[in-house]
Design a binder for these strands. Sequence first.
DNA 1: AAAACAAATGGTAGCGCTATCATGACAGCG
DNA 2: CGCTGTCATGATAGCGCTACCATTTGTTTT
Lengths: 359, 359
Amino acid sequence: MSKDSPNADSRAKNVTTPALPNNARQRRSSDQVTLSQVAQAAGVSPITASRALNYPDKVSDSARRSVLQAVENLGYVPNLVAGSLASSRSRLIAVIVPSLINSVFVEVIKGLQETLEAEGYQILLGNTDYDLDREYQLVRTFLGWSCSALVTAGLRHNSACHTLLANWDHPIMEVMELGKGMDLNVGLDHVAAGRCMASHLIDKGYRHIVYVGARLAQDYRASMRFDGHKAVLKEKGFDAPLLELDTLGSLQAGAEGLAQVLAQHPHTQAIHFANDDLAAGALLAAQRQGLNVPGDIAIAGFNGLPLGQQVTPQLTTILSPREEMGRLAAKELIRRLGGKNVYRRQHDVGFTLQIGGST
Amino acid sequence: MSKDSPNADSRAKNVTTPALPNNARQRRSSDQVTLSQVAQAAGVSPITASRALNYPDKVSDSARRSVLQAVENLGYVPNLVAGSLASSRSRLIAVIVPSLINSVFVEVIKGLQETLEAEGYQILLGNTDYDLDREYQLVRTFLGWSCSALVTAGLRHNSACHTLLANWDHPIMEVMELGKGMDLNVGLDHVAAGRCMASHLIDKGYRHIVYVGARLAQDYRASMRFDGHKAVLKEKGFDAPLLELDTLGSLQAGAEGLAQVLAQHPHTQAIHFANDDLAAGALLAAQRQGLNVPGDIAIAGFNGLPLGQQVTPQLTTILSPREEMGRLAAKELIRRLGGKNVYRRQHDVGFTLQIGGST
DNA sequence: AAAACAAATGGTAGCGCTATCATGACAGCG
DNA sequence: CGCTGTCATGATAGCGCTACCATTTGTTTT
């Protein structure tokens, strides 16, 4: 076949192509209904259709009605990606927690979620597994989604993350612990909580008290509680031994912690556990071994998990308002996102010493 | 001042303005670094910069290096919204669960999350509170984000939701229960699980067995387990009374359930609880009341929560592989998203009867 | 040596929506 | 009656990125 005599097909191409100024390409992947189609069906312009959906009182009743009708008829689903790009507002809230195993964070998420979802925000969830570099990566990704705000557990970040967030011009909410954060902060004073429980144990007459935590470098809030605990004991002139477990907090680990304390510190009268999972695990293990709680050994926890309230004797613990923390954080964010003035950047949700029969 | 003799300033304006064809508006809200700036700094075209980041082996080593360097220098954070709009791929996975209070769903999320995040997907989290209309709303919203896939707990949806999903051309993963779903499915057979536990109780010699659940209309999987339970009891010629609590499953509710069963069915020998929270609550309550388990009353649960393993006697339960369910669901989704063939749409993760001392 | 091919890069045109400005209609007012 | 102000609507031009094609250069094949 000579190249001078192209076949009909290629000639057809050569003839039709110049008709269009450039080759008109087709990129639309799906057959998704667009706002323009809705607008056309409703007999209005695309921008009016947009307004009818986003600012209903900016359009006439008739326009609004016909747009909504068209949406219904065509089964239109707004493309939020396009909307966000155009408006640089996404109604996404990034939530970054260090763990999903630990029910404490889940309860905070729950509080956040119910409040934010009611206001039409969606949650983008990230889990750092207690790794600050991972946190940085997640923050980067989430900023890329033009999130309306970011919630993160804790006040500690690596320097890259800090820089990134400091230059970000949206609300940042740091939850769990109380302190001077980057922007907004809702939490409780963990050092004070540790002091509170230590004081309680001393008031009860215990002198040989061991603090048991798990992976304190990661769960640094537990280590802040230990700081408070230690300070009180030092003030009273007592030793403050620490036992650190290598496994993450769980019932199983609590049983292990009890065994180690009994082995290493046989005179121990009371154990102050970093959380209720550990404490309840120790309490149940003590019972299996026939130890009397608090007679042989007193046990205290932290968090006020339901489990601790149901065991016998009831676990002495410090009740932290976790869902409330989430809800308050969400409310404050919403205030801020609504352009309201923020009077306080720091919110102390407090805690309650709950004295059970275990001490 | 006559209007014919404008001052120098306004004349300057009048002179400069016509130079631009139309008034050049400025929309860029933030001073965010864009890919074009990165490209310029790297001395390549924007599209090459894009490729360097998204398809590193499609560009030369030198180009890749200089782009990455420029990214670093300028602190560029990719705008994922823009990228998603252009490519209609978002690397977002919608995850819709009925509850965050129930730790079972959280564990599934955990399994999903760790697997998906490792592959660079982000989770958009939604909570229906067991409301199918709410589910529909969430699905609509999430489809608007051009999610890469959607994970939802359960096979039941309202008709609008069903239609919407049926016309959606991305993978859909329905988890928790096993059955013919819309697309992919990873779960376990709840009827069989109910049968399994009922058979165990009968084998143990119990005849008067009550099933206790909470809000079965919502937690319909618990009611499927009851169906299995009932079927077995009927086959053996026994009655299968059901007690339905009005509060959601919790330790507290379990204690309440025990009290009601003892009041309404005094001859009851065994209680088959819909889940471990209820069962453990009842077990702990029984102990507080001085009842012997299983002597006075046998107690069984479902899920295999750690709590049930730590109480004495250990709770007889059915172990459901929840994190595994999440991980498997995520893996199958990733296979599918990677364009791999799917050999099986249904995956049975199974369950294990775990016999403790409580029956 | 010419032709065919692959690899690297770039120009262009959107993705679907909304911010911005412009316009036309209509009321109020001196 | 013209002037200003409000309201509803529309035309236009991006948001920042990537798909698509075209082009260039270097490498292999016949």
